[in-house]
Design a protein around this nucleic acid. Structure first.
Lengths: 183, 183
DNA sequence: CTGCATCCATACGGCAGCGTATGGAGAGAC
DNA sequence: GTCTCTCCATACGCTGCCGTATGGATGCAG
């Protein structure tokens, strides 16, 4: 056969889309097959079962969720402060499908220990990198740790917080807040 | 009949427990009935359908999720700074079933507009109260807004962030961070 | 005691999804 | 052309859940 109509990676991709849209419970084989325009017969040729797909989705996310961002930040030159600004700009701009997946996985990790372990690995790698950047700005280690937690919580928690900001837009307040953090 | 064996409120209570444990998809009538030791026949006497239960669960949460905390903080005397510390202490201590429900609803709100509206109302009431407290500490309105967003994101996002903190415990870093915010 | 309202048990039809079994169409090897 | 391997379609049984229908048990009013 010349080309595989629906390769393994397409199932993973569509699975991640469903995960971002409706959580892990929304990752169902038959709806996925309909979305891909095939039947589920092909799925069970590529994958053992539904659990195998879920784990492979997490593999894919774990592989691409950290490296790409860090590499993009490290690609250009500049001191720690300018790299922090680039990191924040990237984190703010990534408001697409990837962000939805990220948030869904965080909620998923609250009730699945295996997912929690993966999230811990990913978060620690990100936190380590951010700590190295803030460490170049601040003298006090406690201050570094506080700023890291604040920045991390801000970017994650901000998407779970649904409040207005006294006439300002969320983007404006976000910029004010990040200015405080990198001072 | 003397006493209702399984009153409406017990279904709501058990529904909230299921919501906190597994999200809205985990709120299912027949498992709930088994958990309550009855059959689902009683459920459909109390409620129209599953959707009615979900909305009543949200009603209950919306009613008790804000007032109780604010009343507890306002009950004692003290200036704005001490009230902020009490507020943070309450928010840190509420690590039980109620917190799970809170986090589950936040994820739920990402994909259900009606839930999002409720969450917005609740968050705005909390944010208004916190703004009044920070407003008594800080002169600059921008600073007030930034601190409000930081504090709110910290308490919510902290539960979705799974990273270590360079040898310190999460509680230690949290205290350091809150110290920074109320300075 | 009888009638009635409340609350629950049981049984039913229906639907959606999982995983399996089996067959079939297409492309390359020879 | 035939054989074989890859990938998908179709059909099936099974499970879990929804919502309904119906009857039973209990307590109270008269």
């Amino acid at each position: 056969m010349a080309t595989t109509q629906t390769p393994r990676a397409r199932w993973v991709e569509e699975g991640l889309r469903a995960l971002g849209g409706g959580g892990p419970e929304a990752v169902r084989i038959e709806p996925l097959a309909r979305a891909l325009g095939v039947s589920k017969g092909g799925f069970y040729w590529h994958f053992e079962d539904r659990q195998t797909l879920l784990e492979e989705m997490l593999d894919t996310w774990e592989r691409t969720g950290v490296d790409e961002v860090i590499e993009a930040v490290e690609a250009e030159d500049g001191d720690a402060r300018s790299r922090l600004k680039r990191l924040f700009a990237l984190a703010s701009a990534s408001g697409g499908e990837l962000l939805k997946v990220e948030l869904a996985i965080r909620d998923w990790a609250r009730r699945d220990k295996a997912v929690a372990r993966r999230l811990r690995r990913v978060d620690n790698r990100r936190m380590d990198y951010m700590r190295s950047l803030f460490g170049a700005i601040c003298e006090d280690d406690d201050d570094v740790e506080a700023r890291c937690l604040l920045a991390f919580s801000l970017f994650i928690g901000g998407h779970f917080v649904s409040a207005d900001h006294g006439g300002r837009s969320r983007a404006e307040v976000l910029e004010l807040t990040l200015e405080r953090l990198t001072r």
